[in-house]
């Protein structure tokens, strides 16, 4: 949607050119630092905002039984250098409601710090999916801190997919914690590509508290140059028939460093949690197969990483 847009473009101008944001049936909210530039509610969705000195408080409710058909677009950005933006977000997906979110964070200037603190409540039989794409400039070093606490009700569904694979990461800290009630589903996916001296810290925790709750934490990280990554994934199952899986894969190149700490904790004899973690260079056979088709080593590595990150 935002492909081809120059990084120094004004967010307000972007609102004019972005087809999705012009669509009357697509809800959106667009925030540049501490200003709400544009927003649109749709039937079944209530958005409340409060502008503060360093950011914006946002409260978003999807009303009971409402199904928001088109993804709700959220666009956060800082177009000035050395500026801080703090978004306090409260999201409630009421019982039986469904909504998906497409969030873009655009941070083209050096020294910018974007903080997000979210509290998310997903009701019984409610569904929530959140796709967050970050677009940073290659020559800008920024800081992103994203925290969320999530409660998922009975048979509720919570899915997130965080992606930062274009541009510099700068410093990234993700800390998500979700707890699921009976027969709920929690899925968290994080895909990040770090370069230069980027620092990536991801902490994701899933608590499967209800009977037959399911959870999956997947992390895919590539680090090259001198970038560093630390991944802490934890899944705790405390109820019968809860099923969880933690899966972390990191590819390192050059002088990159990566660490993965998968923790699985099971406190019920009928629960089951598995984990797998792999850190290393690119697989030799994958590399040689592509080189045997005529790709250079660099091209082959790029393609393998691109695939792993789902780029």
């Amino acid at each position: 949607m935002l492909g081809g847009v120059k990084m120094d473009v004004d967010l307000a101008k972007m609102a004019e050119i972005d087809e999705a944001l012009k669509d009357e049936e697509t809800a959106h909210i667009m925030i540049d630092r501490n200003r709400v530039i544009s927003r649109r509610d749709v039937k079944g969705l209530v958005i409340e905002t409060h502008e503060r000195e360093d950011g914006v408080d946002v409260r978003l409710r999807v009303l009971k039984g409402s199904v928001i058909k088109k993804p709700i677009h959220m666009c956060f950005g800082i177009t000035h250098e050395k500026t801080m933006q703090r978004i306090n977000m409260e999201i409630e997906i009421e019982d039986g409601a469904e909504a998906s979110f497409l969030s873009h964070c655009i941070l083209p200037k050096s020294g910018a710090r974007h903080e997000m603190e979210a509290a998310i409540y997903i009701g019984e039989n409610a569904k929530y999916s959140y796709e967050e794409k970050h677009i940073h400039a290659f020559d800008a070093k920024v800081e992103v801190v994203s925290k969320a606490k999530v409660k998922v009700g009975k048979k509720g569904v919570f899915k997130t997919d965080f992606e930062l694979i274009k541009g510099r990461v700068g410093i990234l800290e993700i800390d998500y914690e979700a707890e699921g009630d009976e027969k709920s589903i929690i899925e968290m996916t994080t895909r990040v590509s770090g370069r230069e001296d980027d620092i990536i810290k991801v902490r994701e925790t899933g608590y499967l508290k209800g009977e037959a709750a399911k959870g999956a934490l997947a992390t895919r990280i590539a680090v090259r140059h001198r970038a560093r990554a630390e991944i802490y994934n934890k899944m705790v199952a405390t109820a019968a028939y809860a099923r969880g899986h933690v899966d972390c894969k990191e590819i390192i190149q050059d002088e990159g460093e990566a660490m993965a700490v998968p923790v699985v904790e099971v406190r019920h004899p009928k629960a089951h949690v598995t984990h797998e973690a792999a850190i290393g260079s690119v697989d030799k056979k994958q590399l040689e197969t592509l080189m045997a088709r005529g790709l250079s080593e660099d091209e082959a590595v790029e393609l393998i990483i691109e695939g792993m990150l789902g780029a």
């Binding site: 056979k285 994958q286 592509l290 088709r293 091209e299 393609l303 393998i304 695939g307 792993m308």
Partner: peptide, 17 residues
């Protein structure tokens, strides 16, 4: 025994060659 590639689509794999 051919290599496996997580995430890489069949189309991209074939077209790369």
């Amino acid at each position: 025994e051919p290599a496996r590639y997580e995430g890489l689509t069949v189309a991209k794999f074939i077209l790369a060659a």
